[in-house]
Design a protein around this nucleic acid. Structure first.
Lengths: 155, 155
DNA sequence: TATTGTTATACTCTATAACTATA
DNA sequence: TATAGTTATAGAGTATAACAATA
């Protein structure tokens, strides 16, 4: 697989060195993330951040507001707002902790689960179309790269 | 290279099917983009969007406000604001087109160029550290995947 | 005293609508 | 009439500061 004369690289730095690699990967990832946001169906009720919180709740189960804020890397007041919006829409349920009266426990509801899965399928549609434009070998490469990108984000 | 028992996948969907691949890639990319934003030095004067515009100006040379808005996928009023902020800070220079009095041409200044490069080095630092935690084989894989991600974003 | 979460308030970025100037 | 850009205004999302309740 080569990127010869037919493809002008979209970044100034050729990623030969590791510093250049960081720069190229950063630009690519930021651009794709922005594109994914812009391709979202505006009819969607919930924001990207709110949907992401539902994903955390499915992955980790019932969580406190503080845990959710940490996992999404936002401040507690922001997470309070997001959780309030999710609760108002019936996507999560809040309850006080029995063992510690200060904490608010948040759990996803059946409606939240269904909504998240439906929204995901829809958001995946754009990227699936884009991936269909790659060759099978390129898709195989992306398949191997995705967990590495995940690790770069979370480690 | 395997992702065996030592690594619990952070996504529910195993990317065996192409739909699953879209889902996994989307989550990974969105997470890394968010992480990159959060790792930015708060002392930076310009927003991510403004820096991205400087990058476009270096890549494409002098551009109109409309061209910049299209390339960044924002509406013209948003780009007017971004360009105004860049001009106020001396990072770009605006001038009227000689051939078409309606258009505003925008060009990067020497100061803008220097600032962009410095900001980039700094933003790259976090990702370079993360990449250093990968094996050489994994980095080689990322090196091949980056231009593909760019294509997914821009095609 | 320290911690968890909330409320009050402000800032940033983006959008739509309405307007000006030019083609 | 259509197009390029700007101004006015509003909405979404996040932040800091101040506060209440609990440990």
């Amino acid at each position: 697989m080569t990127y010869g004369h037919e493809m002008t690289p979209d970044v100034e730095t050729v990623a030969r060195t590791d510093a250049g690699l960081a720069s190229e990967l950063r630009l690519s990832v930021v651009r794709l993330a922005r594109r994914l946001r812009s391709e979202r169906d505006p009819a969607n009720v919930l924001s990207v951040g709110a949907m992401s919180v539902l994903g955390v709740l499915i992955r980790n189960g019932e969580s406190t507001v503080g845990q959710l804020a940490a996992s999404e890397r936002v401040r507690p007041p922001s997470m309070t707002r997001t959780v309030a919006a999710l609760a108002d829409a019936g996507f999560v349920v809040r309850r006080a902790s029995a063992s510690d009266g200060r904490v608010t426990l948040v759990e996803i509801s059946a409606k939240g689960r269904q909504t998240l899965y439906a929204d995901r399928r829809q958001r995946d549609a754009f990227l699936a179309r884009q991936l269909a434009g790659l060759t099978p070998a390129e898709r195989a490469l992306i398949r191997k790269a995705a967990p590495l990108i995940e690790r770069l984000a979370t480690s």
